[in-house]
Design a protein around this nucleic acid. Sequence first.
DNA 1: GACAAAACAGGACAACCGGTCTGTTTATAA
DNA 2: TTATAAACAGACCGGTTGTCCTGTTTTGTC
Lengths: 219, 219
Amino acid sequence: MRKKRINDPQGMRRRVLDVAEDCFQARGYHASSLGDLMAAAGVTGGALHHHFPTKKALALAVIEERVAAAVEETWIEPVRAAPSARNGVRAVFEAVAAALEQQGYVRGCPLNNLAHELSLADPDFRIALADIFAGWRRAISDKVRADQEAGLEGGTDPDRFAALTVAAYSGAMSMAKAEQDAGVLRQCLEGLERVEPPPSQNGSPARRRRRVVRQQAIR
Amino acid sequence: MRKKRINDPQGMRRRVLDVAEDCFQARGYHASSLGDLMAAAGVTGGALHHHFPTKKALALAVIEERVAAAVEETWIEPVRAAPSARNGVRAVFEAVAAALEQQGYVRGCPLNNLAHELSLADPDFRIALADIFAGWRRAISDKVRADQEAGLEGGTDPDRFAALTVAAYSGAMSMAKAEQDAGVLRQCLEGLERVEPPPSQNGSPARRRRRVVRQQAIR
DNA sequence: GACAAAACAGGACAACCGGTCTGTTTATAA
DNA sequence: TTATAAACAGACCGGTTGTCCTGTTTTGTC
C-alpha cells in the first residue's frame, strides 16, 4: 500500500548541506553530531553516508560550497559592485551590522568560526579555509588597484589595505560574537575609514574625481 | 613496601591546567577529551574530578586563569609599560610575529580560539571571554587617553583605536592561523599604524612635540 | 523488460565520552 | 593518638559518536 519514494539526490544533498551549514555555524563542527544533523534534516544514515561518506567530507563540502559562497555573497560581490573599495567596505560593514542588530544576536563570521576550529584539525580543512581568505583579500585589493588606476585612491598599498580590512572585520565579528553586540563592528569601521584617508571627499589634492565617476557609470 | 605519595593539590591543579590550556589551544575544547588530558597530565580521573568537577569547570578555569593571564602578559602589560599606546601596539605585534616565525607554526590567539568555539556554547563561557576582551580593549584605550593627556596623541578616539587594534590583531591571527604564515600580522600592523597618524613623526601639523617628549621622559 | 548502478533505509557495532561511585591514602587539628 | 576532611586512585556505567554493513527501492539504459 505505502510504496512511494522519490529519488531526489540534489535536493537531499542540499538539505543536508543546509542543516550542516547552520549547525556548524551555531554549535561548531565537533559539537554537531551526525545524529543531530540527520534528525534536523529528516535524513536517514544511509542517505547521509551515500552523499557524504565521512563527517570530514561533509564539513569540506560546507566549507567549499557554503562558506565560500557566503563570503562571495556578503563581501566579494558587494565590493566588486561598489563605486570604490572604501565605499564597498563601508557598505558591507554597515549592512552586516544592521542585519545583526535586527536579528538580535550574533553568531559570528561563518568563515572565521570554522577557521578557528578546523584550521589545525586537518590540512585539508586548513587549505580550503585559507583559500577563501585569500579570495576575500584578493577581491578587496583588486578593487583598490582598480580605484587607483581610476584615480580614486591614493598610494595606499592594496594588499595591506585588504589585509587590514579583512582582519578588522574578522576580529570585530569575534568580539561582537563574544559580547553579543554588533556595536564594535561600527566602531572598527570608523577606525578603518581613517586609514590613509584618500584625497577625495573634501579635496586638498582632489583631482579628476568627476571624470572617474563617469567612467564608472559607463561601465 | 611501596607506599609513598605526596599530596600536592596546587601542583596537581597546575599540571592539569597546563595540559588543558595547551590542548584546548591546539585541538579545541570539544576535540579534547578528558581522557586525553588525564593521560597527558599523568593524572587519574579521581584527581581530575576532585579539582574540576566537570569539563566545563575546567574550561572556565582555563579561561579565567590562563587565557586572561596570557592576554595580560602579551598585551596589557607591554602596552602599559610602553612609552605610548602606538609604540606598545607596534611592539606587541612585532614580538608576536617574530615569535611565530621562529617557532615555525601558528596556533592562533588563545582568547580568540576559545571565544569562537565557546561563546555560543554557554553563557558562562561567553561572559568570561567577553570580560577578557573588554579588559584588553580597556588597557589600550586607557593608554591612549594617557597619551592624549601627555600631548602624545592627537584627537584619536581612544575606544575606537582600541577596538580597531584588538580587531585587527584578532583577525590577523585568524588569517595567520589558517595560512600558517605570520606575515599578515606585519601587514596589518603597517596598516594599523596609518590610522589617524599622530602629529609627531615628521610633522606638517606637528606642534609641541619637543615639550611632550620631555614630559614623557620625566615620568 | 532486463539489468546495472545509483539512491536510500535502517540496524549494528566498537570505541569513546563525561560523569559517578567507592575505596584508600595523606594531611590537619584537637 | 584520634577524628576528620581533603587528596587521590581506579573501576564502572549509561549514553553517544562516527562508521560500516546489509538490504530494498528507484532510476537510467540498452
